[in-house]
Protein backbone atom coordinates (compact mmCIF):
# COMPACT_ATOMS: atom_id res chain seq x y z
CA UNK A 1 0.00 0.00 0.00
CA UNK A 2 1.48 3.35 -0.99
CA UNK A 3 0.66 6.66 0.70
CA UNK A 4 -2.10 7.48 -1.77
CA UNK A 5 -3.82 4.15 -1.15
CA UNK A 6 -3.43 4.69 2.58
CA UNK A 7 -5.05 8.11 2.29
CA UNK A 8 -7.84 6.72 0.20
CA UNK A 9 -8.51 3.96 2.74
CA UNK A 10 -8.39 6.46 5.63
CA UNK A 11 -10.83 8.77 3.86
CA UNK A 12 -13.13 5.97 2.80
CA UNK A 13 -13.48 2.68 4.62
CA UNK A 14 -11.52 3.87 7.65
CA UNK A 15 -13.63 6.94 8.15
CA UNK A 16 -16.91 5.07 7.68
CA UNK A 17 -15.81 2.46 10.18
CA UNK A 18 -14.64 5.01 12.77
CA UNK A 19 -17.69 7.24 12.46
CA UNK A 20 -19.90 4.15 12.71
CA UNK A 21 -18.28 2.95 15.93
CA UNK A 22 -18.33 6.48 17.27
CA UNK A 23 -22.03 7.01 16.64
CA UNK A 24 -23.10 3.58 17.86
CA UNK A 25 -20.74 3.86 20.84
CA UNK A 26 -22.08 7.23 21.88
CA UNK A 27 -25.66 6.05 21.56
CA UNK A 28 -24.91 2.84 23.47
CA UNK A 29 -23.08 4.62 26.28
CA UNK A 30 -25.78 7.27 26.67
CA UNK A 31 -28.43 4.56 26.97
CA UNK A 32 -26.22 2.46 29.26
CA UNK A 33 -25.80 5.42 31.62
CA UNK A 34 -29.05 7.31 31.59
CA UNK A 35 -31.43 4.36 31.39
CA UNK A 36 -30.37 3.49 34.95
CA UNK A 37 -32.72 6.26 36.04
CA UNK A 38 -33.04 7.70 39.50
CA UNK A 39 -35.60 7.79 42.25
CA UNK A 40 -38.01 10.67 42.51
CA UNK A 41 -37.12 13.03 45.35
CA UNK A 42 -40.02 13.01 47.79
CA UNK A 43 -38.74 15.76 50.09
CA UNK A 44 -40.50 19.10 49.84
CA UNK A 45 -38.66 21.41 47.43
CA UNK A 46 -37.45 24.82 48.46
CA UNK A 47 -37.38 26.96 45.36
CA UNK A 48 -34.80 29.68 44.95
CA UNK A 49 -34.08 32.02 42.07
CA UNK A 50 -31.21 30.95 39.85
CA UNK A 51 -30.99 27.40 41.16
CA UNK A 52 -31.57 24.64 38.61
CA UNK A 53 -29.89 22.05 36.45
CA UNK A 54 -29.71 24.42 33.49
CA UNK A 55 -28.09 27.17 35.53
CA UNK A 56 -25.44 24.71 36.72
CA UNK A 57 -24.62 23.48 33.20
CA UNK A 58 -23.36 26.99 32.46
CA UNK A 59 -22.10 27.98 35.89
CA UNK A 60 -19.73 25.03 36.29
CA UNK A 61 -17.73 26.30 33.31
CA UNK A 62 -16.51 29.04 35.63
CA UNK A 63 -14.07 28.05 38.40
CA UNK A 64 -15.63 27.80 41.86
CA UNK A 65 -14.83 30.57 44.32
CA UNK A 66 -11.10 30.61 45.11
CA UNK A 67 -10.26 27.52 43.04
CA UNK A 68 -8.49 29.23 40.14
CA UNK A 69 -5.64 30.15 42.47
CA UNK A 70 -5.46 26.59 43.84
CA UNK A 71 -5.17 24.88 40.48
CA UNK A 72 -4.26 27.50 37.85
CA UNK A 73 -2.70 25.06 35.39
CA UNK A 74 -5.80 22.84 35.33
CA UNK A 75 -8.08 25.78 34.68
CA UNK A 76 -6.03 27.95 32.34
CA UNK A 77 -4.44 25.00 30.53
CA UNK A 78 -7.83 23.29 30.41
CA UNK A 79 -9.65 26.30 28.97
CA UNK A 80 -6.90 26.92 26.44
CA UNK A 81 -6.75 23.44 24.99
CA UNK A 82 -10.53 22.89 25.01
CA UNK A 83 -11.21 26.16 23.20
CA UNK A 84 -8.20 25.56 20.96
CA UNK A 85 -9.45 22.11 20.02
CA UNK A 86 -12.90 23.47 19.24
CA UNK A 87 -11.44 26.16 16.96
CA UNK A 88 -9.12 23.72 15.15
CA UNK A 89 -11.85 21.11 14.68
CA UNK A 90 -14.77 23.30 13.73
CA UNK A 91 -13.35 26.52 12.29
CA UNK A 92 -10.57 25.27 10.01
CA UNK A 93 -11.81 25.64 6.40
CA UNK A 94 -10.81 22.13 5.16
CA UNK A 95 -12.63 20.58 8.17
CA UNK A 96 -15.78 22.55 7.37
CA UNK A 97 -15.58 21.26 3.81
CA UNK A 98 -15.35 17.71 5.06
CA UNK A 99 -18.33 18.18 7.36
CA UNK A 100 -20.23 19.76 4.48
CA UNK A 101 -19.51 16.77 2.26
CA UNK A 102 -20.76 14.42 4.97
CA UNK A 103 -23.77 16.33 6.28
CA UNK A 104 -24.45 19.22 3.95
CA UNK A 105 -23.98 21.69 6.81
CA UNK A 106 -21.52 24.52 6.40
CA UNK A 107 -20.40 27.71 8.15
CA UNK A 108 -17.65 30.30 7.69
CA UNK A 109 -14.14 29.34 8.81
CA UNK A 110 -11.20 31.30 10.16
CA UNK A 111 -8.06 32.28 8.20
CA UNK A 112 -5.63 29.42 7.94
CA UNK A 113 -2.75 31.34 9.58
CA UNK A 114 -4.90 32.08 12.59
CA UNK A 115 -5.90 28.42 13.00
CA UNK A 116 -2.21 27.57 12.67
CA UNK A 117 -1.42 29.80 15.59
CA UNK A 118 -4.26 28.32 17.61
CA UNK A 119 -2.96 24.82 16.87
CA UNK A 120 0.46 25.75 18.24
CA UNK A 121 -1.13 27.26 21.38
CA UNK A 122 -3.26 24.13 21.80
CA UNK A 123 -0.25 21.86 21.46
CA UNK A 124 1.63 23.95 24.03
CA UNK A 125 -1.32 23.91 26.45
CA UNK A 126 -1.64 20.15 26.13
CA UNK A 127 2.04 19.68 26.87
CA UNK A 128 1.68 21.92 29.92
CA UNK A 129 -1.28 19.95 31.31
CA UNK A 130 0.65 16.72 30.69
CA UNK A 131 3.65 18.02 32.60
CA UNK A 132 1.27 19.11 35.36
CA UNK A 133 -0.21 15.60 35.48
CA UNK A 134 3.29 14.19 35.91
CA UNK A 135 4.42 16.78 38.46
CA UNK A 136 1.39 17.26 40.67
CA UNK A 137 1.19 14.51 43.32
CA UNK A 138 -2.64 14.32 43.25
CA UNK A 139 -2.89 14.12 39.48
CA UNK A 140 -0.08 11.59 39.27
CA UNK A 141 -1.72 9.53 42.01
CA UNK A 142 -5.08 9.50 40.23
CA UNK A 143 -3.63 8.76 36.81
CA UNK A 144 -4.03 5.35 35.22
CA UNK A 145 -3.10 4.04 31.80
CA UNK A 146 -6.29 5.61 30.47
CA UNK A 147 -5.17 9.12 31.39
CA UNK A 148 -1.94 8.84 29.41
CA UNK A 149 -3.64 6.99 26.58
CA UNK A 150 -6.47 9.50 26.14
CA UNK A 151 -4.01 12.38 26.28
CA UNK A 152 -2.11 10.78 23.41
CA UNK A 153 -5.32 10.11 21.48
CA UNK A 154 -6.26 13.79 21.74
CA UNK A 155 -2.77 15.12 21.12
CA UNK A 156 -1.93 13.17 17.95
CA UNK A 157 -4.64 14.64 15.70
CA UNK A 158 -3.63 18.20 16.63
CA UNK A 159 0.05 17.52 16.16
CA UNK A 160 -0.27 15.61 12.88
CA UNK A 161 -2.80 18.06 11.49
CA UNK A 162 -0.51 20.97 12.18
CA UNK A 163 2.50 19.09 10.78
CA UNK A 164 0.59 18.20 7.62
CA UNK A 165 -0.34 21.82 7.01
CA UNK A 166 3.25 22.91 7.71
CA UNK A 167 4.66 20.14 5.47
CA UNK A 168 6.92 18.95 8.24
CA UNK A 169 8.77 15.65 8.61
CA UNK A 170 6.79 13.56 6.09
CA UNK A 171 5.31 14.20 2.65
CA UNK A 172 1.93 15.94 2.83
CA UNK A 173 -0.07 12.95 1.62
CA UNK A 174 1.45 10.60 4.17
CA UNK A 175 1.06 13.07 7.03
CA UNK A 176 -2.54 13.78 6.03
CA UNK A 177 -3.28 10.04 6.02
CA UNK A 178 -1.71 9.69 9.47
CA UNK A 179 -3.71 12.70 10.66
CA UNK A 180 -6.99 11.20 9.49
CA UNK A 181 -6.10 7.82 11.00
CA UNK A 182 -5.31 9.45 14.35
CA UNK A 183 -8.69 11.18 14.32
CA UNK A 184 -10.33 7.85 13.56
CA UNK A 185 -8.56 6.29 16.53
CA UNK A 186 -9.86 9.13 18.69
CA UNK A 187 -13.41 8.63 17.43
CA UNK A 188 -13.30 4.89 18.11
CA UNK A 189 -12.09 5.27 21.69
CA UNK A 190 -13.97 8.39 22.72
CA UNK A 191 -17.21 6.70 23.82
CA UNK A 192 -15.41 4.09 25.92
CA UNK A 193 -12.89 6.23 27.81
CA UNK A 194 -12.91 9.29 30.02
CA UNK A 195 -13.12 11.32 26.81
CA UNK A 196 -16.83 10.55 26.98
CA UNK A 197 -17.08 13.39 29.48
CA UNK A 198 -17.57 15.48 26.35
CA UNK A 199 -21.14 14.12 26.44
CA UNK A 200 -21.82 13.25 30.09
CA UNK A 201 -20.53 16.55 31.45
CA UNK A 202 -23.90 18.08 30.61
CA UNK A 203 -25.87 15.31 32.31
CA UNK A 204 -23.66 15.40 35.41
CA UNK A 205 -23.92 19.15 35.78
CA UNK A 206 -27.65 18.98 35.23
CA UNK A 207 -28.09 16.32 37.92
CA UNK A 208 -26.12 18.17 40.59
CA UNK A 209 -27.78 21.43 39.62
CA UNK A 210 -31.21 19.85 39.94
CA UNK A 211 -30.40 18.46 43.38
CA UNK A 212 -29.11 21.84 44.53
CA UNK A 213 -32.05 23.58 42.89
CA UNK A 214 -34.42 21.33 44.84
CA UNK A 215 -32.76 22.50 48.04
CA UNK A 216 -32.72 26.12 47.00
CA UNK A 217 -28.94 26.36 46.76
CA UNK A 218 -28.05 28.58 43.82
CA UNK A 219 -24.74 27.27 42.48
Amino acid sequence: MNEMQLLTWARGTGLDFAVGIFLLGVLWRLIEIYSLGRKKDLSAARQAAGASGWHTIFRRSVPAEGMLKKSPVSYIGGYTFHIGLAICVFLFAPHIKLIQSLTGLSWPGLPSQFVDLIAVVTIAAMVVVLVDRINKPVKRYLSTFQDWFTWTLTFLPVLTGWMAVQHLLLPYTTMLAIHILSVELLLVFLPFTKLFHAFTVFGSRWYIGTVNGHKGVAV
Binding site: S71, K139, K194, S204
Partner: peptide, 11 residues
Protein backbone atom coordinates in the same frame (compact mmCIF):
# COMPACT_ATOMS: atom_id res chain seq x y z
CA UNK B 1 -23.04 6.41 36.22
CA UNK B 2 -22.92 9.87 34.68
CA UNK B 3 -20.54 11.14 37.37
CA UNK B 4 -18.07 8.28 36.97
CA UNK B 5 -18.18 8.67 33.19
CA UNK B 6 -17.44 12.38 33.51
CA UNK B 7 -14.44 12.33 35.84
CA UNK B 8 -11.27 13.39 34.02
CA UNK B 9 -8.94 12.96 37.02
CA UNK B 10 -8.22 16.68 37.25
CA UNK B 11 -7.79 16.42 41.01
Amino acid sequence: ASYFSSCVHCG
